[in-house]
Design a protein around this nucleic acid. Sequence first.
DNA 1: AATGAATGAGGCTTCATTCAT
DNA 2: TATGAATGAAGCCTCATTCAT
Lengths: 192, 192, 192, 192
Amino acid sequence: MKKTIEEKRKDVLEVATKLFAEKGYEATTMAEIAKLANVGFGTVATYFENKENLLLKCVEEPMADFLEEVLRFNTQPNDYQEEIHQMTLKHFQLFSEKRLYLLLLIHVTSQWEKYMKPYLIANKAAREMSDKFEQLIQNGQREGKLAEANANVLAISYISLLLGLFLSNTDQFSESALKLYAENATRLFGLQ
Amino acid sequence: MKKTIEEKRKDVLEVATKLFAEKGYEATTMAEIAKLANVGFGTVATYFENKENLLLKCVEEPMADFLEEVLRFNTQPNDYQEEIHQMTLKHFQLFSEKRLYLLLLIHVTSQWEKYMKPYLIANKAAREMSDKFEQLIQNGQREGKLAEANANVLAISYISLLLGLFLSNTDQFSESALKLYAENATRLFGLQ
Amino acid sequence: MKKTIEEKRKDVLEVATKLFAEKGYEATTMAEIAKLANVGFGTVATYFENKENLLLKCVEEPMADFLEEVLRFNTQPNDYQEEIHQMTLKHFQLFSEKRLYLLLLIHVTSQWEKYMKPYLIANKAAREMSDKFEQLIQNGQREGKLAEANANVLAISYISLLLGLFLSNTDQFSESALKLYAENATRLFGLQ
Amino acid sequence: MKKTIEEKRKDVLEVATKLFAEKGYEATTMAEIAKLANVGFGTVATYFENKENLLLKCVEEPMADFLEEVLRFNTQPNDYQEEIHQMTLKHFQLFSEKRLYLLLLIHVTSQWEKYMKPYLIANKAAREMSDKFEQLIQNGQREGKLAEANANVLAISYISLLLGLFLSNTDQFSESALKLYAENATRLFGLQ
DNA sequence: AATGAATGAGGCTTCATTCAT
DNA sequence: TATGAATGAAGCCTCATTCAT
């Protein structure tokens, strides 16, 4: 039973993302990607032109869905406590699930001069997140529901906490552990 | 005026740390390190045997001092509010100052299978930090001064926030910005 | 008109054998082999993995045919005089023709600790030769046709004479010279 | 108790000869020689200028004594049988003892284009040996004591047998084994 | 005289890319 | 369209040599 082109292309992207994230871009070879994706290694070149472009696609293509999920919260909820609880839990679950993708984003970010195009994509997304968090925070502060901290600082701290947690821990978190971390994070916002 | 061996060795270590952190281990060439450190490139090999060992020394040698500074806080202070305020400010300043070193630690951690020896060093340090933070938190909780969260979760969240902040932001923070972030972080502990 | 893979592989092996034999393994560069074999120098790596393995193949692959030719004599002939005359002539011609291969064998033998795998192959062949010569000698002695020397000593002396002649003389022997040396060697066996 | 310069120089030469012979010229490092000779490695350069010249001295200096010993036989003896018996035994003992030196000579001979100067020395010696053997043989033939073979062929065969034996056998021969081989070799001359 | 720190040329190897099938 | 044989650029490392002490 042969796979469609679209399926094979996706296999390659997934394998590449995993390897780029775990071993780094330079240390990952095209041959290794091809092998783990069960395609001939000329095929990878056919699909993605070259290695650099493959990295770009690894960063680019999942971004829309990822960002959409991250930003799926209400900046003017009736109940800030409830909204933020749900949001943090969602984020911790999502970031845990997409850990490899985040690792990849950090890689391209920390070497932004080399990976300019992927970096710009990652950076734009980070700003969008930060902006929407700020809105939520400012709205909550205006209604006296959230701590009176600098909204930008708080937003960036929140993102940093999320990233730092999944980047510096190599092993998976259980569902219950994620819940604990999510609840803990709400304190940043001045809740509880 | 010639530099001593010790000075040149230190130059090499500093340059290597910077490049490994910014560009990644694989993407950094020995020739580049040598050039920026103003030594012939056989000299790097003379000092450090090989690239892998150079990485190890970059991680290993600064660790003792770094760890000592990070752990320089009192786990049973009279005034928890004051102690934690000072501690967080100290940590944000220190992590900002040692940003490159932290980047390097994250690199080896995120690819721990490849960089086993450096990873073990980084990991041991992380556990020591986490342990001492936990002690502080548990003591504070026993006296009713800190939030009743799981101490381990809180400690790891605090470290994650610190790491995440300096890893995902490529530019320097001003002294006043650091102060804001530090104060903001105290909320994690349930202060203010 | 393009060469087949098999032809190119053989070209590389021949060039490598020649250079390894004439200049020594260490002094021969992969680039030199590739150039003389008219292939790109990555190609040599594609065919043979690495230099060490190339040496192994140079020793290994021609051995079966070579050994078969060397051992093509009758250990119980009717006419020992005739058989040994023909055998020695054959051997001197063969060793002259395969001079480069023999040089290579001596190289790996004289540095056996470094070239373990090729050495074992060469050594096994040497023992097979020696064994079959001994049989011939013992049979001839039993029938009173050959000198009453220690058979093992005689066999090894014969091989040594063959090897020594072609190793220590850098230039080619003419057909008539070979005949002279061959006849001369029969005296070792106590003939004539 | 410090060694004299002359003693240290000799140590270096001996170590170098051993290593050049066993591992080959290219595979032997100056550092290794210096270490085994218990001198600093700049010292080797001070004594011998450079590696190439060290090789030359390894070949050159022992040659006079060696040649003198090899040529110490009478080309017009009263008893050819006796003289040749004694000569062969002497040669087999000497070549066994100087096996490393002979290996070295073969090395430089088989790569004569690279090691021109050492090669010329070795070659000149070989011709001197061959010439004196020829004289002995021709004299013996004239008196009807030796086989009527081509004297040059016989001389070269004899040298070849000696060289081949010690080059292709990696292990030491016992005194009694040497005696067997020596006696066996006399048959080449038509004795016994 | 003796040493070894510093150096960079050159080799082996890896690997992204090209191209003919 | 999919493949992998062929290629050579570039990196790490080894090591002979130089030179200041």
